[in-house]
Design a binder for these strands. Structure first.
Lengths: 148, 148
DNA sequence: GTTGTAATGAGACTGAGTCTTGTTCTATGG
DNA sequence: CCATAGAACAAGACTCAGTCTCATTACAAC
């Protein structure tokens, strides 16, 4: 799903951090690396098991920092564990398949026809409700291939 | 947004509970009443303030019971408080406007054109990913009228 | 009534996520 | 090179939404 190379992403995130007077340190880079590699939303326990050298408190702090500069986005999954992924500006707009059995989250890219329909509809809501939309996300709930 | 009258909803929920060998007691009814009245997702603190006679532990238990028979659905909002609403079977299919400023959740009914586009796209994903879809939800993130 | 089961209230408990504190890096400047 | 100031960090205490336990109460069936 990566539209840019990992190198590009690192460079972009470094710039984003610098704009916020933050450094792109080893710990932050390790987390971004993981997010690039996995290519789908990652939970804190994923981070703990993949990057055991990073303490939980640091992982949370890094994620908050990365969010604050717009490099990372928090994803609300179906279980009650927060998950994190690279911001869409760095990858591409996509939606999520949520498995209610194993909790897994799978990224999927929408078709242009669908996104056009969404945009049209959102404009209607915005008009009617006086709502100013920033972004949208579609979650498809069901069972993944493994869970049948 | 109510497609059925509150009376109908109570009757349906009573039947759902009975099928699960559960009774439609005063506490459960009070919560369902609140969900009908408010007509949008409600948080635990909303329930506490609107129904002070129901202890928190009971409110949570009632919500779990109501969920287990399919009368109520848990909604993941943008803040990290769970919210609850009547299941779509009892009301009508709808989506959510999430305000990132005040945390409010507003129900909106999708246009038929949009739902057709969603269905088509979901079928494609299901095919491609071996995913068995049960339901979907679209969240539109932004600022509500009050928050500008 | 009696009796078995569901429902309830009160409060202890759990654990994801946050905050605090003291320490270690690192970028700059003399 | 060293000094030093601010950022980053590790460790662990802390918070509080949500869950669990258990003793008590309501209810349905006989």
């Amino acid at each position: 799903m990566a539209v840019r190379s990992a190198n590009d992403i690192h460079e972009l995130i470094e710039r984003l951090l610098r704009q916020g007077d933050l450094r792109y340190t080893t710990g932050r880079r390790a987390i971004v690396d993981l997010l690039c590699r996995v290519g789908q939303p990652v939970s804190i326990s994923d981070i703990e098991s993949q990057l055991p050298s990073i303490p939980r408190s640091s992982a949370y702090r890094h994620l908050v920092d990365l969010q604050s500069v717009g490099a990372v986005r928090r994803v609300a999954a179906n279980d009650d564990f927060a998950r994190f992924e690279l911001a869409e500006d760095l990858t591409e707009h996509h939606h999520h398949l949520l498995c209610t059995s194993c909790g897994d989250v799978i990224d999927v890219a929408p078709t242009p026809a669908f996104e056009k329909a969404v945009t049209t509809m959102i404009e209607q809501f915005a008009e009617r409700e006086g709502f100013r939309p920033f972004s949208h996300s579609l979650d498809i709930v069901g069972h993944c291939r493994e869970c049948g």
